[in-house]
Design a protein around this nucleic acid. Structure first.
Lengths: 204, 204
DNA sequence: TCCATTATTGTACAGGAAGTTCAATAGTGG
DNA sequence: CCACTATTGAACTTCCTGTACAATAATGGA
């Protein structure tokens, strides 16, 4: 079930009407989720326990449990926060250019942003936990949304899926599985290969 | 450090000369690694503890610790075993056909063979553990060796890396990250796209 | 200012798993 | 048959999770 303090403030909640707005709750949630996100990115899901987050955030363990009864509750809000912080880079409208921008952003998010470890954590947990599967989807969606948008607005419908898989996959393999850097030349290369026989001059 | 019973039988060890060959050791190691591999594939690294493996294999916890003092020791042999059991499918020599075969094998290994969860487990641990990084490399190498071989023997040198990343990546994205099935049509599709402007008629 | 309400805290506790130790047992090779 | 060694079961320490509760502190409203 959901959190137990502050009466329902799931991510979709607009603080409309007379929502009780205790500044203690706001402050606590902000501090804790910040600490939890840091821990999740640095050390993975397994290491990010209630106790560890409490230690980092400087709050009592009991407080964390009061807000987020189960690990998944905590992870849900933490990952939501991480996703919100992941802002897509600005697009100019040129297919190749925008693809290069968004794929570079993905590469950065994976290696510097530590999404590689994070995704791995979530995938491991998604094996047992139905809820974790939602989080996996959300993370994947967030990390690749920009690239999908670019492809969708420039390519034929049938070309989007395989091109997306190949481009995202190539970066993923290189950054996460091979643990190598993703130089600009590599990105240019895979874009050229993926777009052969696929482009058609519309735009929008 | 390494195991503590049987005096050094790391994977590279040939049982040459007068190696002490206690059948108890052989039997124990076989049973335990088998159970450990099953647990690792079913439930991931974190759940595959000494205690859990002992339970599964029907041996005492103390025995497991005697053979593999640390979790990494156990995982090293377990993953070695899993890699040995991963046999590449037979190749005929035709580029497209062999690629389809080996990519299908990868897709199967990921979903049915539970390599998706396994790789994720190892990647998560590789963040902290230097030794786990070796295991990650070995697993990735094993899962993709067949595909790399096919590409190497048919493509120009510079084409191998990006093509491999795109093909493996596309399957990986589809099977592991999107959690969808990988139908034959998808594989044919990505092969066609990856090979455009790349083939050149030698072979061997 | 005071008060009722509620979030937070410190502590204490049960439960379980990790990892270690050791004397007793049982299988092995000679 | 014997010396040797792998295996066992059990007890034990330690650590962490998850929960409970009374005491404290901060808040919003009168």
């Amino acid at each position: 079930m959901g959190p137990g303090i502050g009466r329902g403030y799931s991510q979709g909640m607009t603080k409309s009407s007379g929502e009780p707005e205790d500044p203690r709750v706001t402050r606590t949630r902000r501090d804790v989720i910040r600490a939890s996100a840091a821990s999740l990115l640095e050390r993975g899901w397994t290491a990010t326990t209630h106790a560890e987050v409490a230690r980092r955030a400087g709050y009592s363990k009991a407080t964390i449990y009061a807000h987020w009864p189960t690990p998944v509750d905590l992870m849900r809000d933490t990952i939501a926060r991480i996703c919100e912080d992941t802002t897509p880079p600005p697009m100019g409208g040129d297919l190749r250019e925008d693809l290069h921008t968004s794929l570079s952003a993905l590469a950065w998010t994976l290696s510097e942003g530590r999404y590689d470890r994070l995704m791995a954590s979530v995938i491991e947990h998604a094996g047992d936990d139905e809820d974790a599967r939602e989080l996996q989807e959300r993370l994947y969606e967030t990390a690749t949304a920009g690239i999908r948008d670019v492809l969708t607005s420039h390519l034929r419908r049938d070309d989007v899926e395989p091109c997306l898989a190949m481009l995202v996959g190539a970066v993923l393999v290189r950054a996460t599985y091979e643990g190598r850097s993703v130089p600009p030349g590599f990105i240019t290369d895979i874009i050229d290969r993926a777009l052969t026989d696929v482009e058609h001059g519309d735009g929008h």
